[in-house]
């Protein structure tokens, strides 16, 4: 394994100073993405900055009732946090559908936002990959692309964004707090991850900054949620297609609906047109199927992944149906 220098930061400001002082440096939180990719020689930090001593490990309820999650809250602690379970069960469901107990115990909220694609060509330092090495080509385009994206891809890159947690954040809505050399700023989660376009190596809107917190939008009430994840084995596997749904019901009519997809798109994928179609409709399978068709209308299959379109359709219909059932139970 390639070696690197080390620094341990004892404040947010120091962490950012270290980062800015050395362009090739990288923060380490849980290490489950970074060290995996250093071992594969895909990431090559000259220095690793340990941020685990920073005071970013709590979930707070703000005066306006929103939940603010510190960037170092582990995926396990977030999934089982009583306020998260009460207000945002979708977030808990999505996190627990991902990875393993051990990985969730290590993985952090900030690290999860920053996790890299599982595209096998990206992970193979000998393959052509525009994301890893800009301009080198994309071996997935005409290679084995069963796992790749049907939404949001470009000629340059069709890699899936692999996070389950981020699918829930896309549906719920969230604001990220970033700390950089010039102080703090906030950014809408929806604009944090970028589409690959012609620059797939630019994955997010972060500029020498540290993610310090994620603040969740207020919950819908009364609320039903469901996360449906379809994959090659029943546990400890990334999604081929996943859907996170949130519904509020007014009698048997849908009040507000939220829908986001994972496993099929190049970034956490919010389906706003499908949501608009569902509002005010009867909560039945016909409406859910129509919403799924709208959500997938722009899907473009590659040679090996056309199956993902009907699979995602199933995930959407099942997630919406289950969310409606739970919203109904909640209302009565």
């Amino acid at each position: 394994m390639r070696t690197f220098a080390f620094a341990r930061a004892d404040s947010v400001a120091r962490a950012v100073e270290h980062r800015q002082a050395e362009p090739g440096s990288a923060f380490v939180a849980g290490g489950t993405t970074l060290l995996d990719l250093v071992k594969l020689d895909v990431m090559q930090p000259s220095r690793v900055i340990d941020i685990n001593a920073l005071p970013l490990t709590t979930v707070e309820r703000l005066p306006d009732d929103r939940l603010r999650i510190g960037a170092l809250v582990t995926n396990t602690d977030l999934a089982y946090h009583p306020d998260v379970l009460a207000d945002h069960p979708l977030l808990s469901q999505a996190i627990l559908a991902g990875a393993s107990t051990q990985v969730r115990n290590m993985a952090t909220t900030g690290g999860n936002l920053m996790q890299r694609t599982r595209c096998p060509y990206f992970r193979d330092a000998a393959a052509a990959c525009n994301k890893r090495e800009p301009g080198s080509g994309c071996d997935a385009r005409h290679g084995v692309n069963r796992m790749h994206a049907v939404l949001g891809g470009s000629r340059e890159c069709v890699a899936v964004h692999p996070s389950d947690m981020c699918v829930a954040l896309a549906a719920i809505g969230a604001t990220l707090t970033l700390h950089g050399p010039h102080g703090e700023r906030e950014i809408d989660f929806a604009h944090f991850h970028r589409l690959p376009g012609t620059t797939p190596h630019l994955e997010h809107d972060l500029d020498d900054e540290l993610i310090v917190a994620v603040t969740l939008a207020p919950p819908l009430m009364p609320l039903g949620t469901a996360y449906v994840k379809l994959r090659d084995r029943a546990s400890f596997e990334f999604a081929l297609a996943s859907a996170g749904a949130m519904l509020s019901l007014d009698e048997d009519l849908i009040g507000e609906a939220r829908l986001a997809l994972g496993g099929v798109a190049t970034k956490p994928w919010r389906c706003r047109e499908a949501e608009a179609l569902l509002a005010g409709k009867r909560a039945d399978t016909a409406a859910f199927a129509a919403a799924a068709d709208v959500a997938l209308a722009d899907a473009q299959p590659l040679a090996h992944n056309a199956f993902k379109i009907p699979l995602a359709r199933q995930a959407i219909v099942r997630a919406l149906r289950e969310a409606a059932r739970r919203a109904g139970e909640d209302a009565t």
Partner: peptide, 22 residues
């Protein structure tokens, strides 16, 4: 690479993969 669990240890009482930790 965090995929098999053979390296599981406890860190402050929680199960973690020792292969993905410095």
């Amino acid at each position: 690479h965090g995929q098999c669990g053979a390296c599981t240890v406890h860190v402050d009482g929680r199960a973690m993969n020792a292969c993905l930790r410095l």
